[in-house]
Design a protein around this nucleic acid. Structure first.
Length: 448
DNA sequence: TCTGGGGTCCTAGGACCC
DNA sequence: TCTGGGGTCCTAGGACCC
């Protein structure tokens, strides 16, 4: 039996823990650059503000109803997430952290140990709320997809008090008949339109389609698995998360700029900043990468710009995998030089690290590339490698202790900006940012 | 004027291997 | 006339998730 625990409008809930004045008002949290709505309080949903709406389209509506918009504060949400996951780990033998605000729990065997499942679910909700202030809903079912269904309905119908268990055939059928097919996990915009065209409107009807149709129209084997899971046949196991974090198979960092950029040095400032951050994440999960991608985007809403709006270059590192920021920077600079076209107005840049593996599997050397390919430094030796690793350890330690970006590559340091301008030309807007209540000493709340 | 970021999995074709 | 089977890696693209 799976449990799916999901924070209710998570980002807004995190903000409300520290700002009770937001209770009862329409509140939204915005994406980076204050671009789109990514979390809505129930009051904001009632106003009809859709998920993902561009902020400029709903700003006036929100103001009219004494609402509040907040810039996203990921240090806060990430830390609150860690606290929630730590509580969940106390309630189940295995937990899979699925996203910042939800986790699958393995509940097999707990009925005998701890009494009825509903009581367990109630205990989990109460504990998470008491310890973190975050309200949640819990779905219980024999497959992950049905657990998502249960969770969805538990959120939708307050009379369920945040919990729905789908462990009998009758309960499964009743739940699926109550859920629109478009709300099933794995059914997005494209598939929803196809289902609609076939007259399949409920999750129950979706569960009746044949294997051939599912494979042909719902993405091959993925679609067929979805149908079987709806029927109660598990196709996906639980992937337990080590120490409450998720090891990724790729790591990326990208941002929209606060303004259009045309100058190479500004773009390099942005890319070097993002790459430093990605490399930091890479080392934090104790991996090395052997594939590096850099991309630049133009404005996809500008009708004068022909597609493709995003161009990327990918490099399989000729000297094998690395987690060294300086080494990756040298490659990234060459990739950016390849991509950059003078005169183009860029709105966004990013980097992706792929081909992740733990170090020490034996270095793959290239027959042709020199050992120190682009850094301009002498060829690597075991001693210089050890020193490079030590340098990264020191870098990470300093940035952990004194704050992100305390020590960074020179390219990421912008020249002094005129007053009123952002500190770096690539920085985005964040005009409504709340304090980092739980991760910065200066931002701690003081109780009078 | 203003439109996010970070992921996953699958497919399909081509080049290449034994 | 008849032209294998089982792989890997790469690239690009498409769908989905939160």
């Amino acid at each position: 039996m799976y449990g799916l625990v999901d924070g209710n409008n998570f980002y807004v809930s995190c903000e409300r823990v520290f700002q009770p004045r937001l209770d009862g008002r329409p509140v939204v949290v915005l994406s980076n650059n204050d671009g789109n709505v990514v979390s809505r309080s129930p009051e904001a949903k009632l106003l009809g503000i859709p998920m993902g709406a561009p902020f400029f389209q709903v700003r006036e509506l929100l103001t009219r109803h004494q609402g509040q918009a907040l810039s996203s504060n990921y240090p806060l949400y990430g830390d609150m997430s860690r606290r929630v996951m730590a509580r969940l780990a106390e309630h189940a033998p295995a937990v899979e952290v699925y996203s910042i605000d939800e986790a699958f729990l393995d509940l097999d065997g707990l009925t005998t140990w701890c009494g009825p499942l509903d009581a367990r679910a109630r205990a989990i909700r109460r504990d998470v709320l008491d310890c973190t202030g975050i309200p949640t809903c819990v779905g219980l079912a024999p497959t992950k997809t049905l657990a998502k269904v249960a969770n969805r309905l538990a959120k939708k119908y307050p009379e369920l008090q945040g919990i729905l268990r789908l462990d009998t055939e009758a309960r499964r059928e009743r739940a699926l008949r109550a859920l629109p097919a478009a709300d099933v996990w794995g059914v997005g915009r494209q598939y929803a339109a196809k289902l609609q065209a076939q007259g399949l409107t409920t999750a129950w009807q979706l569960g009746q389609v044949g294997e051939g149709w599912a494979r042909q129209h719902l993405g091959g084997v993925v679609g067929w698995r979805l149908i079987q899971e709806l029927r109660g046949q598990p196709c996906q196991g639980l992937h337990p998360s080590e120490d409450g974090t998720l090891a990724r198979q790729s790591i990326s960092c990208s941002r929209s700029f606060g303004q259009r950029l045309t100058c190479f040095d500004d773009l390099w400032g942005a890319v070097s900043t993002y790459l430093s951050r990605a490399a930091e994440k890479l080392r934090a999960q104790h991996d090395q990468a052997h594939i590096l991608t850099v991309f630049l985007s133009q404005d996809r809403y500008d009708t004068r710009v022909p597609p493709p709006y995003t161009r990327s270059v990918t490099l399989t590192l000729p000297a094998g995998p690395t987690a060294d920021t300086l080494c990756l920077l040298a490659y990234a600079r060459r990739l950016l030089e390849k991509l950059y076209v003078p005169g183009r107005r860029y709105v966004k840049a990013g980097v992706v690290l792929d081909g992740l593996e733990p170090p020490g599997r034996g270095q793959q050397l290239s027959l042709f590339a020199p050992a120190a390919p682009v850094t301009g430094r002498p060829a690597a030796t075991p001693e210089s490698d050890a020193r490079a690793r030590q340098l990264m350890r020191s870098l990470d330690a300093l940035n952990r202790q004194f704050g992100r970006g305390t020590v960074r590559p020179a390219a990421s340091v912008a020249s002094p900006a005129p007053t009123g301008q952002p500190a770096a030309p690539w920085l985005g807007r964040a005009e409504h940012r709340s304090p980092a209540y739980t991760t910065r000493l200066e931002d701690l709340l003081i109780v009078q």
